[in-house]
Amino acid sequence: MEKSRVYFTDMRTTENSNLQKKLARLIRKAGIGNIDFEKKYVAIKIHFGEPGNLSYLRPNYAKTVADTVKDLDGKPFLTDCNTLYVGGRKNALDHIDTAYLNGFSPFSTGCHVIIADGLKGTDEVLVPVSGGKYVKEAKIGRAVMDADVFISLTHFKGHEITGFGGALKNIGMGCGSRAGKMEMHSAGKPYVIQEQCVGCRVCAKSCAHDAISFTDKKANINHSLCAGCGRCIGVCHRDAIKPADDESFDILNQKVAEYTKAVVDKRPCFHISLVVDVSPQCDCHSGNDAAIVPDVGMFASFDPVALDVACADAVNAQPPIQNSQLKEHWNESGDHFHKVGPNTNWKVGIAHAVELGIGTTEYELIRV
Rank of each mutant, 00 (worst) to 15 (best):
H285Q: 14
L126S: 13
N34Y: 12
C207D: 03
N102E: 03
A208R: 07
D117R: 05
H112C: 01
C236Q: 05
S105I: 01
H352V: 11
K181Q: 10
D148Q: 10
D289G: 01
Y41E: 15
P268E: 05
H159K: 10
S206L: 00
R58Q: 13
P319K: 14
T361N: 02
V65K: 04
P106N: 01
L326I: 09
G158W: 03
D246P: 02
E50F: 04
L101C: 01
D117Q: 06
Q322S: 15
E50I: 02
D80V: 01
H271N: 06
K339T: 08
T98D: 02
C111L: 09
E247G: 00
L119F: 15
E160K: 05
V202C: 02
F299H: 07
G141T: 06
D335W: 08
V340N: 09
G334P: 11
G121R: 01
P190Q: 07
P190H: 08
V192L: 09
S4V: 05
K63V: 01
T79V: 04
T68I: 14
N220D: 08
E124R: 14
D123Q: 13
R178M: 12
S273R: 02
T162S: 15
D250E: 15
C236L: 09
F77S: 03
H237T: 10
P268Q: 05
H47D: 04
V65C: 03
E137G: 00
S324M: 11
K266N: 15
S4G: 10
F107L: 15
Y7A: 01
D73L: 13
Q325Y: 12
N253Q: 13
T13G: 01
D97P: 00
F337K: 07
D216T: 00
T109P: 03
L307Y: 10
H155C: 04
P342L: 12
G349H: 11
L365F: 06
I251R: 14
H155W: 07
A66C: 09
F337Q: 05
G287L: 12
C229M: 02
K169M: 11
F104R: 03
L57S: 07
L168Y: 02
G165S: 05
S130N: 14
D146A: 13
K157Y: 03
L93A: 11
I35D: 08
N34M: 11
K39W: 09
T98R: 04
P190L: 07
S333I: 13
G110Q: 09
V192H: 06
T14D: 14
Q20R: 14
W330E: 15
M1K: 14
H47L: 04
D308F: 08
Q281S: 14
S130G: 06
A244T: 08
G163A: 11
G33C: 10
K39C: 08
G180Y: 08
S186V: 07
A30L: 07
S130L: 13
L252G: 00
E124C: 07
G103A: 04
H285A: 12
G199S: 10
Q281I: 02
I241A: 02
Y56D: 01
C311H: 08
D313L: 03
L225P: 00
P294Y: 12
K205E: 14
Y191H: 15
V276Q: 13
L57F: 08
V129P: 05
V235F: 11
Y7M: 02
I233V: 11
D303P: 08
G87W: 09
K169A: 09
